[in-house]
Design a protein around this nucleic acid. Structure first.
Lengths: 158, 158
DNA sequence: TATTGTTATACTCTATAACTATA
DNA sequence: TATAGTTATAGAGTATAACAATA
């Protein structure tokens, strides 16, 4: 299962940035699932946990906007984290429509181990390049995710 | 919708390679959909078309293995391409279990315009970096998608 | 016994519409 | 009127199990 088909010419797709992104992302997702599926954690749940830790009291809609997850899709996600006892939902102090999110004591207790496994997971891929290459990769991925549309032509040409 | 929340500290997730990959991939998918959804094309359909063009007569299971798409999931995908009149399924000459795939005349006629739009789409993102940066990015993404598992410790250290 | 194509099925992610209660 | 949370729903991607025909 290493080489899919030596006789197949895959250059047409391998030359595509979008295709390489997809395959690289899939590889990291597979490793992530291997590590965190036994704990019942998926990427969206873990990302929410990390941001709630860094931003205690953050409201659900703000968390969703930061993670690019629609409000409607945040609900079952937060339900899951709450049912697992990792977070608590509180009424927001300044807005009675909103829900403020915090880690529960159990969530705080579990985060160190989660972060350790996450760091191992990340290192498993970062170790395939030099520190300089890694820094540039993070920078370039950041440029790709920026919204370039709606501004006309601002690209200074490469 | 450019800045989700200026008051939110997102460094915990922005420091993750997996998260940056996800966001960069999502940005390219959004642009891809804007271009190709009106034509009824999705990434999997387009990738299949490109590989069938480069590998006329390729059998379905080999195409699936190359694209990392399970055989069971290839069936509705090929049904869709066939129903759209873009490909034809033929009996494989050497194996009566297999199905050989080829572009139909209509598929061949449509591919040039598809490739043009695809190149524009790709250039919209590649233009955000220098040629050298682009080359390194493609290389690094290729390293990430390689199966590093099952070999023990072969990483030469960065 | 293993593989190819296929069907059926299930789960996750994502997207939209509509409702309520607040603002 | 606009927003926060919620519900319901639908589409796409992905995964496994099982079957018939063939290798």
């Amino acid at each position: 299962m290493t080489d899919p088909s030596p006789g197949t010419d895959a250059t047409a797709v391998n030359a595509l940035l979008g295709y390489r992104l997809r395959r690289a992302y899939a590889a990291m997702m597979a490793d992530f699932a291997e590590v965190f599926a036994p704990m019942g954690l998926r990427t969206s749940l873990l990302a929410a946990l990390l941001l709630i830790e860094s931003n205690p009291g953050i409201i659900a809609s703000e968390l969703g906007a930061t993670l690019a997850i629609k409000r409607a899709n945040m609900v079952p996600l937060l339900n899951e984290l709450e049912a697992a006892g990792l977070i608590v939902r509180e009424p927001a102090p300044d807005d009675r429509r909103a829900t403020a999110l915090r880690l529960s004591p159990k969530g705080q207790a579990k985060l160190p181990e989660i972060k350790r496994r996450l760091a191992d997971h990340e290192a498993r891929f970062a170790s395939r390049m030099t520190a300089a290459e890694y820094a540039l990769l993070m920078d370039l991925l950041g440029r790709l995710q920026e919204d370039a549309g709606e501004h006309g032509d601002q690209s200074p040409k490469g």
